[in-house]
Computed example of a mutant assay.
Amino acid sequence: MEPMDYLSMFAYYSVSMIIGIVALNSPQAYRPIFLVGIISFAILSFRTISDASFGLWGSEIFAMFLIIYISHMTCVLCVEKYVLPKKAGTTVDWVAGFRMMFNARWLGTHRQAPDIKGASKSGVTSDTPNEQREEEYSRDPSKKYRTMLRSTRAIFVRDRLISLVLTLVIDKVYSHIIAEVFPQYFNGLDALDFLPTKETYFRRLTSVTLRETLIRVWIVTYFIWSSMCLYTTIHDFLSIIFVGSGFDKPEDWPPLFGDIREATSIRNFWAKFWHRLIYRSYTSYGIWISKNILRLPRSSFIGKLFINLYVFAMSGFVHAITIRQLGYTCGDREEIRFYVSNFFGILVETAAMAAFSKITKGYKVNSTVSKTVGYTWVFMFLFTVLPKSQYPKIFCAPA
């Protein structure tokens, strides 16, 4: 990729970003006009991305970032019609606009995405006793340095540095185990390991090999770990910069992922463990379509089903657009199918739990047993459906 292409990519996005900040500070009547400019320049930036831009992983991250950005800004400006808090004597609040533009989880607002631990609450000030104590101690020069090291900001930066280092170390250990401990199963992977006939498993139990089984196990762990590692590393790095510089506060950067121990069902896997970057915008779109186009009551069973289906289908659709832009010649339909299959997986587990409760008349299974069954179900579901979306890409990946 030529230097001019990189320059164009970031120039287009910078223009979109400036228009976005102005739009956030503008009356609602002008926002649709600004939104056209925001989306147009973001698309121009998106179209310059290829697998050669920052490597395949880096290009995919930037492409997904732009799609989430477009989705979020459309939601903020024209669906939720969010208005920035008024600041006396300020016509255009550049700082508040910049923060909201990248606040895809709507942290600190009345529309904050659910199940985010450590985030600031809407309307709650950050004037905590710790901060009051820090301000009091800062007046005493003999305590100033000690207070700085013990401040919530310093503790946050320290913890995120530890998280960053640990994530990178664990990733190296994980890669070493795959490459060195199990070389006979993972070294020398080729197209024969990902043939279309190997996308199915249980229908071929009599012919599957140990190597094939371990590859599928690796696909599941890699899908979870690679996403956690990559996104958490970027999130930790940016949080250290913005909080360490004093631009943001620690509560503005809660962890990106939840506790994986809560992933005892497919619903919990996506709702409590996975990142919430697209939840608010996709849900808002689903609600708007359900209410204004399909005329479905939001509280109705069908209405809720549609909104959930829309969120998963939209997730698959944007992933499909991304891999096409990166140069894959196939795999887009499989991406959509994978995310939609998670919606149906949730329906199955919900129906199964309801049936079990009805048959046993509300009998409660031991917590340990319940969690073990839940973890096994989630793993086996991904073990079954992930290869169907990942294997085809091996044959049509960018050169």
Rank of each mutant, 00 (worst) to 15 (best):
N130L: 09
C78S: 14
Q28A: 09
T74Y: 00
F381Y: 14
P114V: 07
T206R: 13
F356W: 12
P297D: 03
A355Y: 04
L347W: 07
M73A: 01
M17Q: 15
A113D: 05
M100Q: 07
K198G: 00
Y30V: 03
W218Q: 11
I38S: 07
A355D: 00
Q132W: 05
R216K: 09
T283I: 12
M380Q: 02
S142C: 12
R203Q: 14
Y69V: 11
F202R: 07
Q132H: 09
Y285A: 11
C330M: 07
G118P: 14
R295K: 13
S71K: 05
F237K: 07
T221K: 08
S290E: 02
F223N: 03
S281E: 01
L77C: 10
I266R: 00
G188I: 12
L214R: 00
K291L: 03
P250M: 03
L56Q: 12
K249C: 09
S40A: 12
F156P: 08
V181K: 15
A263L: 06
L256Y: 05
T283N: 15
T221R: 10
A355L: 13
G37A: 02
E349F: 14
F202M: 11
I39E: 08
R204G: 11
N187S: 13
N103E: 05
S341M: 14
L326F: 01
Y231W: 06
R153M: 03
A23D: 13
E2L: 12
G246Q: 04
S8Y: 07
C396I: 09
I336M: 10
S300M: 04
K304P: 01
A351S: 13
H72V: 05
I289T: 06
Y145R: 12
I38W: 07
K393L: 15
V76A: 05
F356T: 02
S300R: 11
D5G: 04
R31C: 08
S239T: 02
V369A: 15
L195M: 10
P387H: 13
L192P: 00
I61S: 01
I33M: 08
D171E: 09
A399R: 04
F10C: 15
I241S: 08
H319A: 00
A42H: 09
T125M: 08
W270N: 00
A313L: 14
